[in-house]
């Protein structure tokens, strides 16, 4: 934990029936969590970081998926839509990952935990799919991966991987939720800034 970690700017507001909780660190790191405003379910968590040269980075989705849009003409290359699609959406008790479009028989899959890199390893014996899954939530509370908490099943062309949340993680999540609610403001701060910017132009 560096000094830049301390004292981030936090703000929350409600937009399109989602509570959006935005955290900005001094070094340019940003994290956005989006909760369902009614059920408090965590729908999206994304982080981004400035590149060394100062350019704005791309959002990395820890939870949820980037809004889908048709690929732009200028796009260099995109994975074809027939490829497996990886996404994470947690339940109350579990981290849960879904990998869709995996139309192989169930027995080709094998899951393990790589202790060295602290990642969940998904392998296929037909060498068609391979994935290393990091769990930043555990890293944040500095806990190792525990194989006994890992479960998985394959059905309807989808591989579902669950990992039961340790209590520390659940406590931290509850804290985040509370903080998001407490900090919720009426007017999204962007609008104020936007109005300021418009006045200048």
């Amino acid at each position: 934990m560096t000094s830049a970690d301390e004292d981030p700017e936090k703000v929350a507001f409600i937009k399109d029936s989602r509570r959006i909780f935005h955290i900005q660190w001094k070094d340019g790191r940003e994290m956005v969590e989006e909760y369902d405003a009614k059920t408090d379910e965590l729908l999206v968590r994304k982080v981004r970081q400035k590149s060394r040269l100062g350019a704005e980075g791309k959002w990395e989705y820890e939870i949820g998926m980037p809004p889908s849009r048709p690929p732009a003409e200028t796009e260099l290359l995109v994975p074809s839509s027939n490829n497996p699609i990886f996404s994470r959406k947690d339940t109350q008790d579990c981290f849960q990952w879904r990998i869709r479009n995996l139309s192989f028989p169930s027995d080709v899959f094998s899951l393990s935990i790589d202790d060295e890199t602290q990642q969940i390893l998904v392998k296929t014996s037909n060498k068609k799919y391979y994935k290393r899954i990091s769990v930043p939530d555990l890293a944040r509370v500095s806990l190792p991966l525990d194989p006994s908490r890992l479960e998985w099943k394959h059905m309807h062309n989808t591989l579902i991987i669950s990992y039961r949340k340790p209590t520390e993680v659940r406590m931290m999540e509850a804290r985040h939720r509370r903080e998001a609610k407490e900090r919720t403001v009426k007017v999204p701060p962007m609008f104020e800034e936007m109005a300021k910017a418009l006045k200048q132009h």
């Binding site: 200028t74 260099l76 290359l77 074809s80 060498k127 068609k128 799919y129």
Partner: peptide, 20 residues
């Protein structure tokens, strides 16, 4: 166009843009 790439462990199909 499309391109299939593989490693020793996996395989992915990519759709290619004009520049690519």
């Amino acid at each position: 166009g499309s391109m299939t790439l593989k490693t020793t462990e996996m395989e992915t199909i990519y759709d290619l843009g004009a520049k690519m």
